[in-house]
Amino acid sequence: MIFIAASVSFLLVHLAPGDPFSSTLDSAAVSESARAAWRQVYGLDRPLLEQYVRFLAQLARGNLGPSITRPGPASAVLVEALPNTLLLMGTALVLSFVGGVALGAWQASRAGTRVDRVTGTASLIIASLPEFWLGILLITVFGLRLRLLPMADATTLILYDSMSPLQQLMDRARHLVLPALTLGLLGMASIARYQRAALLDVLPLEFVRMARAKGVSDRAVLWRHALRNALVPTIVLAGLSLPTLLGGAVFVESVFSWPGLGRVAANAFEGRDYQVVIGATMIGAVLVVAGGILTDLLHAAVDPRVRVT
């Protein structure tokens, strides 16, 4: 699958108009001979099939090839940005999963009430918001109006280097809040809706009625018995949301000036940095596969009928 993703992205990015050396409006006056020399250096003057074969040969050796917009290999550009994106995505995933499940269960326990309807409408609205819009909204409220949280970057510029390790940790955490909240709220709203629906399917089942008949409290019935059975579709959703989170990170990272993979990928595509674009696509493919595996593992953990072999 990763090989297919690499091949398809290779083809698509090379078929897009322009190339790395015709990329900017600012450099329109650069001579064609210079551009030709640059293309020759990176083998872009060769037939596409030859470039593809060379790319595959490099890839087989675990080498994506050089970045065209930065010194050094493309993989280094991606590796540099990946930790920030993983931190952002991981935090958002935990927030959306834990928050979504809790909210969905809470709503299910009050199904049909006014509070459930209001919460359901609110989660529907939030789930429908574009990432960048929600990001701007949070910046306006928590950064601009309340001045509680930093609005951009992964650390406080200038001051970070003079902080103690503990202060640096706190600083990173504070900078993470708004971008992670943006991504996490969107996921949380979707998961809550799924979770509520799944619980409402489970609550009328016999084993739940049996538990109630045995005198188990409503709270224990919901959280201990019904929820575990209603988690399966949510777990599938959470696993599959990994690539979606990466897509969302492109916008969120732009709004919050977060130095992560999404931003690198967007810039690389604009600058036609072929190897970085392909590498970012491959990371997306890895996340799809990883999401599937994670889904299977979690499914097995919560459903005793499923065994991982």
Partner: peptide
């Protein structure tokens, strides 16, 4: 002592950060 150039691509975030002194 120093000048830091930071990348801000979103115009709304740019306005907000100017307003707060970031």
């Amino acid at each position: 002592d120093r000048v830091v150039f930071t990348i801000v691509s979103d115009p709304n975030a740019l306005s907000a950060r100017l307003t707060t002194g970031e």
